[in-house]
Simulated assay, not measured.
Amino acid sequence: MKVGFIQCAIISAVFAIAGYIVFSSASVEASLPVTVAVSLLLSGIVTPWLASFLSSSSPASVKTQTASKATEETATLYVGNLPYKANEDAVKDYFKDFINVQSVRLMKDRRTGKRKGYGFIEVVTEDVDSAILELNDKVFLERTLKVRAAREKGDAE
């Protein structure tokens, strides 16, 4: 799990302000209401955000969606041999005719910014194997796609 710089800065700033308010008060009696107010603020705003942030899982895993989509499972599919000229919207439009697409990520070369010809599609499905059978070897913009279940980073074949 990675916590971004901005999230760390926000949490640090909130705790720094809370500590300054509490410890800069002249008397203990005056700091008690401030301490209670700050702890209520932190439990009401920061805690739910932090809990939802920490509970997120990796994109390649099968997971259960939140309240409105509690019964739908998602899976991430690897799609290879994509046309280099295809963008995320074109890929999503093509695949939505076959399966319920949640998101599309096409990989790019870090140095040149050009697409690498493969990507990952997060889909809603109960049967990943039948989705792969249906989508593998489909022709998209004159290229035969290769579709399989995505693996976690570092998984050996």
Rank of each mutant, 00 (worst) to 15 (best):
K96M: 12
G154F: 08
L54R: 13
S130E: 10
A150P: 03
K138L: 10
R143W: 05
T76A: 06
P48C: 06
P59T: 01
K2L: 12
P48L: 05
L106H: 08
D129Y: 08
V3D: 01
D127Q: 09
I21D: 01
V79G: 01
D129S: 14
G80N: 10
V128K: 14
V139K: 14
F53P: 02
K63P: 00
Q102G: 01
V91E: 00
G119R: 05
K153F: 11
P59F: 01
S43P: 03
V62S: 13
I10E: 01
N87I: 08
A150N: 07
F15W: 12
S103Q: 08
S61I: 10
E73A: 10
R111M: 05
A149L: 15
P59H: 03
A75L: 04
A75C: 08
A150V: 07
E126K: 15
E29W: 11
S27Y: 12
F120V: 05
I6C: 06
K138V: 07
A86K: 03
A60K: 04
A70V: 11
L133F: 08
E29N: 08
G19S: 13
S52N: 11
F95R: 02
R115D: 00
I45K: 03
V3I: 15
L54D: 00
V14I: 15
G117L: 04
L42W: 09
E142A: 08
D89F: 14
V3N: 02
V128C: 08
A86Y: 04
M107E: 07
A18H: 08
A70D: 04
I45L: 12
F98L: 08
S25G: 02
K92R: 15
R151P: 01
V123L: 06
M1C: 12
A9Q: 09
D97I: 10
L54W: 12
G117F: 05
T125H: 08
L54M: 13
D109F: 07
R151H: 07
N81T: 09
S61A: 11
G113C: 06
